[in-house]
Design a binder for these strands. Structure first.
Lengths: 146, 146
DNA sequence: ATCTATGCAAAGCTTTTGCAATCGT
DNA sequence: ACGATTGCAAAAGCTTTGCATAGAT
């Protein structure tokens, strides 16, 4: 039962990346977080942001959200909650008030998988991207939104 | 109400990409599908596979699964169902027999989002990747699996 | 003093795009 | 014949990695 993990050092960069992420409710991408961190540590590199995020995820301090679209997003809120993603602008918000839903956590399903968790992501339009009813018919539905 | 979409041609490449995808239950990535299509059309290019998949998604014939990890996966089964992803090998399977769950489809939530759909992905270990109980404690949990 | 972590730049990987040639209609 | 579609190759975008140096313990 040897702990093969190296001793982690509490660097300024790590403090800032985690500290800034915890302040935000906006689930930033790595490069957004890089821009924010740079305001405090002008010489920090994007690679360092990625490396620290990866480490924080491994340590269970941060959650990586691989939502649709391009970049991964990061969330320092480890409480159980799911997310809403805007189809138009890509913004991601928390969803804590899901109308009475209880998904099973651990079970074995008929195809033999041993389930240990799930990921639930709602898809829609954020307040800023809502449009008048009339427009809605002209929109192609999201590939996974239906 | 002008239909600005160009007329679609029924090319051999498109037939093969869609045809092979429909035969598979395995949710292949674009490059897996490319390898398969190449057995029938040796000169097809990866770009063509991507372009046809994109078109099929737009037309509602194929669903794009942006699951965790790197590559997107594609599914020609448009019926309502969700997916199970193996934490170890990345394989994705269907999950039709979800124990009594009913998620709300369309609603407006308190943060103002207009929800039109959702994405539910279960995470666990596939039959081939299951290990003895004793091993399970040494595994780092998935970033989004808990 | 040791060895993890950093900054920088290059490389990796998936996906997209420009262009001349091809082929479905 | 027209123009959507293709193959090819280059480019784009996000993320990872190699390496010498800096810095936490």
């Amino acid at each position: 039962m040897a702990s093969s993990q190296p001793v982690r050092r509490n660097t300024r960069q790590r403090q800032v990346v985690w500290g800034e992420l915890k302040k935000l409710k906006s689930h930033p991408t790595a490069s957004e977080l890089y821009d924010i961190a740079r305001q405090r540590l002008p010489r920090i590199s994007l690679g360092t942001v990625y490396r620290n995020l990866e480490l924080l995820v491994e340590n269970g301090a941060v959650r990586k959200l691989e939502v649709g679209g391009g970049e991964a997003r990061f969330d320092a809120d480890m409480g159980e909650h799911c997310h809403v993603r805007c189809l138009r602008c890509g913004r991601v918000d928390d969803l804590h008030d899901l109308p009475g839903t209880k998904l099973p956590e651990r079970f074995t399903c008929s195809n033999g998988y041993d389930i240990i968790g799930h990921r639930l992501e709602f898809i829609g339009y954020c307040p800023e991207c809502k449009r008048p009813e009339a427009e809605k018919n002209n929109e192609n539905p999201c590939s996974e939104g239906g």
